[in-house]
């Protein structure tokens, strides 16, 4: 469904700050894949999502969504295929707008005309959609989103993104800024929504346990490359120990100690 072909991303080319974030990376995301992405800081995970969503354009290489070359398509146009959730819970919603206004913006993607579509029927739909979150938000449609907690806000963002039926859901460590309890709730909702709506998703996480437990495919990134791509049964049988061992096998020449996996 989504194909990356020989993608390279160089930031600040030709300067002392030159940094190759993605190195000649090729991969295919198949419909129905739920991919977890792990890797140390600077491995290129977020840049990979940025490239797919279109907030940066690749230095070299192509990206195709359903066979269509979108390498230079601006982010807002790709947004009709892609739903993205950021680490920062405030990025997905407008805090000064009410819950219903926020949900209305996200209900349908693309250009917004002069129609007044927020009516009683729409509110009903929103209330019903909010109920499964079990956060009591269904009675707070008129409240500003800025009044919600980070966990509530991220759960709302997730719900709104899912309601717009994206072809691909990108999750960029979307629970990392939450406290453990809320992180668990949002993660559980993620799992639930993805299976319920049969979404294709890519999730970056720093939690190896989550990466192993969730999804049908796992990518390990390092130095702007995918060094390990495992799926299906092989992934089912992974453990954190095996994963760490695998990392050392793959990068044994470059790294000598355990710390490198986390420190770099």
């Amino acid at each position: 469904m989504i194909k990356l072909e020989n993608m390279t991303m160089v930031f600040n080319p030709g300067t002392v700050n030159e940094n190759t974030a993605i190195r000649n990376l090729s991969m295919t995301v198949n419909k129905g894949d739920f991919i977890t992405v792990i890797g140390s800081n600077g491995a290129g995970k977020t840049t990979l999502l940025n490239l797919i969503s279109g907030s940066v354009f690749p230095t070299e290489g192509k990206i195709r969504i359903q066979e269509k070359d979108v390498s230079r398509t601006p982010e807002y146009q790709r947004a009709s295929f892609i739903g993205r959730i950021f680490q920062d819970p405030t990025m997905g919603t407008a805090g000064k707008l009410s819950l219903e206004d926020n949900m209305n913006i996200c209900y349908k993607k693309g250009f917004k005309g002069l129609k007044i579509s927020l009516n009683a029927k729409r509110r009903k739909i929103f209330q019903q959609a909010l109920e499964p979150l079990k956060m009591g938000l269904e009675s707070r449609l008129k409240d500003n989103v800025g009044l919600l907690s980070g966990g509530q806000r991220q759960a709302l963002t997730l719900l709104m993104t899912v309601l717009s039926h994206p072809e691909l859901l990108l999750l960029d460590e979307h629970t990392a800024a939450l406290d453990p309890r809320n992180a668990e709730i949002v993660l559980e909702l993620t799992r639930q929504f993805i299976s319920e709506y049969q979404l294709t998703a890519m999730m970056i996480t720093h939690n190896m346990k989550h990466a192993i437990e969730m999804g049908n495919r796992l990518l390990m990134m390092d130095g702007g490359e995918i060094i390990f791509d495992v799926r299906g049964e092989e992934k089912q049988n992974l453990t954190v120990e095996k994963l760490v061992k695998k990392f050392h096998e793959l990068r044994s020449k470059e790294f000598a100690t355990d710390e490198d996996l986390l420190a770099r």
Binding site: Q77, A79, F86, M91, A94, K96, I105, G110, F111
Partner: peptide, 13 residues
């Protein structure tokens, strides 16, 4: 004015 990223993410220029 509140969250330009959100507007972009919803497919609006």
């Amino acid at each position: 004015g509140n969250n330009e990223q959100m507007v972009i993410s919803q497919g609006v220029n």
